[in-house]
Simulated assay, not measured.
Amino acid sequence: MGGLTGDPAFAATTFVVIDFEATTPTGYPAQPIEVAALALRYESGAWTTSGRPFSSLIRPPAFAPVTPAVTAQTGLTAEQVNRAPHPAEVLSALDRRFAAGKQYLLVAQHAATEANLIHHQREHCPALARVDLLDTIPLARYLYPGLPNYRLDTLLTHYSIKHPANRHRAYADVEVTAEVFIRLVHAADENAGFSDLAALVKIAGRTAKCNMPAQGELFGPTPVGQRGHSEPI
């Protein structure tokens, strides 16, 4: 492979692919109803998973019920999520997966959505909320400027990745986003513009809101890697 995956900083980073499903109540921020995460490492020329995948339904607050539109998209019903754990329980459990002294980047398709959901839940997941992000959309746009759009379904078709039957469920979307990310890294590795992790971050990096100055915008170029605490992912 090329310079990107040969960069020690790239090898030292755990890439955590993350996806939320959410309900969007009028007058309130989006509220998570499901989350999934899958940690990847690039070691000895191959991708491996790091730790166990994480997936859980999340009970939304009363002001953010699951609507028929959400059920039509995700298949999740109000009865299912109303039996789920509260956000504090789920997100604190995910937060404990981020170990002190390790370098992480979150990976998401349209990372603004995940970044905002995490930021609004930051009291439950302070370590997660300080991990910066990579967005697959600007990376794909840079590498494949001729595609009609950069939606996940379009990228799956471009790479001939099978669309999952339960598309728009968090873990199914995490699995296929991880496949897309691996393909994008392979393409970037063959592109002279991606000499190291810093170059990847320059194109696709997004700064977690908790890492920005108080008056900063939500997104900007991200520094490489952030640290968390407790059990490793």
Rank of each mutant, 00 (worst) to 15 (best):
L200H: 11
D153G: 14
R130C: 07
T113H: 01
E123H: 12
S55M: 04
L139V: 10
A178R: 12
L40G: 00
T154Q: 09
H158I: 15
G75Q: 07
A108S: 06
P85R: 08
T67P: 07
F54C: 05
P85A: 08
A84L: 03
G220W: 08
S56R: 06
H168D: 03
R167S: 12
G45H: 05
G146L: 09
G45A: 04
L106P: 00
V131P: 00
G75P: 11
T207I: 11
L197P: 09
V81A: 05
A11Q: 14
Q73H: 03
T77N: 09
H168P: 03
R151P: 01
E175H: 14
P148R: 06
A208Q: 01
A11R: 14
H110G: 00
P65L: 02
T49C: 08
T48W: 11
S92I: 10
P68G: 13
V185T: 14
L91A: 06
Q215P: 08
H168E: 03
E175L: 15
D132L: 03
P126H: 06
Q109S: 01
P65T: 04
E123N: 08
L133F: 07
T77D: 12
G45K: 04
L128S: 11
R183E: 15
F63E: 06
P221T: 09
T26C: 05
P232S: 14
A187R: 15
N191C: 15
I137P: 00
G27A: 13
R97A: 07
L57R: 01
H124D: 06
E21L: 02
H158N: 12
A64M: 04
E34R: 04
E34D: 01
Q226G: 14
I58Q: 00
N116K: 02
T24P: 01
A84V: 06
R206M: 10
L200N: 03
Q215M: 09
A188L: 14
L147C: 12
Y171F: 14
A178M: 13
R96K: 13
G3V: 04
L152T: 09
V16A: 06
F15L: 14
P85W: 07
A188I: 13
A172H: 09
L200M: 14
T177E: 05
Y142M: 07
R122T: 06
A127K: 00
L117T: 01
L134I: 10
R59K: 05
G205N: 11
